[in-house]
């Protein structure tokens, strides 16, 4: 049997339950992919602010777009589009989810 590659392009392998095994940072999530937050690193700046808009462990999010000339990313969290910097997003650990329902 050939190894199934994870379809979320994170480069990770699938586990038995179909979830992507690899945990990556939110900054690495490609546009159009969905993910679930695993944790926000304790060293992250403005953790509380992120938490207040729903960026807490367990929340689902969708990467909507990257801004031109880098820097900003746009994620959909709790039905709202939020723009944040990839530096901050790098401190948010996520688990990409399978595409397509």
């Amino acid at each position: 049997m050939t190894e199934k590659k994870c379809s979320c392009c994170c480069g990770g392998k699938k586990t038995e339950n179909g979830k992507c095994a690899k945990e990556v940072s939110l900054a690495e999530l490609p546009v159009g992919a969905t993910a679930r937050i695993v944790k926000v690193m304790p060293k992250a700046r403005g953790r509380k602010k992120l938490a207040d808009v729903g960026l807490v462990a367990g929340t689902e999010l969708l990467m909507e777009a990257h801004a031109p000339f880098g820097g900003l990313i746009r994620v959909r969290v709790l039905e709202t589009s939020m723009a944040l910097h990839s530096e901050e997003a790098a401190n948010i650990v996520i688990q990409p989810e399978e595409k397509g329902e």
């Binding site: 403005g46 992120l50 808009v53 900003l72 939020m82």
Partner: peptide
């Protein structure tokens, strides 16, 4: 000092 964490809603 470091600025506030940038978080902006796109309504």
């Amino acid at each position: 000092g470091e600025g506030e964490v940038y978080l902006m809603e796109l309504p």
